[in-house]
Amino acid sequence: MRAKTATGPGRPRRPARRGGPGRRRRRRHLTELGFGVLALTAVIPPAKGALFPDHRDAGTAHARTVVSSAMLEQADTSNVCRRGRVALTFDDGPDVYTPQVLRVLRAYNVHAVFYMSGEKAAARPDLVRAVVAGGHLAENHGWDHPHMTDLDAAAVHRQLAATNIAITRAGAPRPTRFRPPFGDTDDVVNRQARALGLRVVRWSVDTEDWRGRRPADIAATVLDKAGPGAEVLMHDGVANSAATIEALPAIITGLRARGLCTALHQG
């Protein structure tokens, strides 16, 4: 995954933090490179586009139209919690595919959690407001998707505080949850989150939808792995978000057929 140019709070020059973040970065980059090489031998690339789109980047400058009236005409709004709740969550927006995600969720009577990039929330406050207007939660995903454990305490604080400001300036309630990019957290990150009133939340089902997976495979992952109390990780701000949107009707109807309602967890 290529590095992004920092904006907003940025990354300060600093001596290495205790525990050797520079060494951890090198180990992590080597690990990620190894996984990438393995994946190249197992995945057939799409006819167009990169094999593995950077999951931090917007899908395209202009979204491909995925949702149609025909796609939603069979939408069932019944949502009975016979076995428990499953939370559908979306990272890395708000972005060009967010309005179509919202359209599907509205048709199926689903409330979800959107973990937002601060820089994108600042750039598209209209989409932050649309998320909240749909009854969804707008929560904190950091300013520009860094590995938080590579940053010192002051830089982590700036990432989180600036994102809170961007979301609230758009008209949303103050975030109460923080999902660390890559799930990358430690005691320093956790302390800074708590200081800002943020509860660190990860996930239990990773769809890996950003990797260029097919809609059927994304849906199958959720239906195979999600049980009562699951937190399902998807993305509304990546190159493959169109496939995630296509998968949503099968995910929602499949979960409900198993007695699992699609709803926000309490607390």
Score class of each variant (00 low, 15 high):
residue 7 T to Q: 09
residue 27 R to K: 14
residue 38 L to T: 10
residue 152 D to T: 08
residue 233 L to P: 03
residue 3 A to D: 15
residue 91 D to K: 07
residue 48 K to L: 12
residue 259 G to H: 07
residue 219 A to Q: 03
residue 245 I to H: 00
residue 99 P to R: 02
residue 232 V to H: 00
residue 12 P to I: 11
residue 101 V to S: 01
residue 213 R to G: 11
residue 92 D to G: 03
residue 140 N to V: 02
residue 37 V to A: 11
residue 5 T to E: 13
residue 123 A to T: 08
residue 33 L to D: 15
residue 169 R to F: 06
residue 4 K to E: 15
residue 258 R to S: 03
residue 23 R to Y: 09
residue 16 A to R: 11
residue 233 L to C: 00
residue 65 T to I: 10
residue 49 G to W: 10
residue 57 D to Q: 08
residue 21 P to G: 11
residue 156 V to W: 00
residue 240 N to R: 05
residue 263 A to L: 10
residue 1 M to H: 13
residue 175 P to W: 02
residue 130 A to M: 14
residue 180 P to Y: 05
residue 168 T to M: 11
residue 70 A to W: 00
residue 145 H to D: 08
residue 141 H to Q: 00
residue 263 A to W: 06
residue 228 P to Q: 06
residue 14 R to Q: 10
residue 264 L to N: 05
residue 119 E to T: 06
residue 16 A to D: 15
residue 237 G to C: 04
residue 108 Y to N: 09
residue 6 A to I: 05
residue 152 D to S: 04
residue 254 G to R: 03
residue 180 P to G: 03
residue 206 D to R: 08
residue 14 R to F: 04
residue 33 L to I: 11
residue 205 V to A: 06
residue 18 R to G: 15
residue 215 P to T: 11
residue 153 A to Q: 04
residue 190 N to C: 08
residue 168 T to S: 09
residue 147 H to P: 04
residue 264 L to F: 02
residue 67 V to G: 08
residue 127 L to H: 12
residue 45 P to R: 12
residue 122 A to E: 13
residue 263 A to T: 13
residue 11 R to I: 13
residue 61 A to Q: 04
residue 259 G to V: 14
residue 216 A to Q: 10
residue 253 T to Y: 01
residue 5 T to N: 11
residue 22 G to A: 15
residue 73 E to I: 10
residue 74 Q to A: 12
residue 226 A to V: 04
residue 115 Y to L: 11
residue 114 F to M: 06
residue 183 G to C: 11
residue 47 A to F: 09
residue 151 L to W: 07
residue 35 F to T: 13
residue 29 H to K: 13
residue 215 P to C: 08
residue 38 L to H: 09
residue 250 A to W: 00
residue 62 H to Q: 07
residue 244 T to E: 01
residue 106 R to K: 15
residue 116 M to V: 02
residue 180 P to R: 05
residue 59 G to T: 10
residue 82 R to H: 09
residue 158 R to T: 04
residue 182 F to L: 09
residue 197 G to V: 06
residue 74 Q to D: 15
residue 123 A to F: 07
residue 8 G to A: 04
residue 65 T to C: 02
residue 221 T to Y: 02
residue 266 Q to N: 13
residue 61 A to P: 07
residue 93 G to W: 00
residue 257 A to E: 13
residue 75 A to Y: 03
residue 29 H to T: 15
residue 131 V to D: 11
residue 17 R to M: 14
residue 211 R to A: 15
residue 36 G to K: 07
residue 252 I to K: 01
residue 224 D to F: 00
residue 205 V to Q: 02
residue 254 G to L: 01
residue 229 G to P: 13
residue 258 R to M: 10
residue 177 R to D: 09
residue 20 G to T: 11
residue 108 Y to R: 05
residue 159 Q to V: 06
residue 243 A to W: 01
residue 111 H to A: 14
residue 5 T to V: 14
residue 227 G to I: 05
residue 64 R to W: 08
residue 194 R to P: 04
residue 208 E to K: 12
residue 22 G to P: 14
residue 232 V to D: 00
residue 242 A to E: 03
residue 113 V to N: 09
residue 6 A to N: 07
residue 138 A to D: 01
residue 113 V to E: 07
residue 178 F to H: 06
residue 54 D to P: 05
residue 71 M to Q: 07
residue 246 E to K: 06
residue 121 A to P: 07
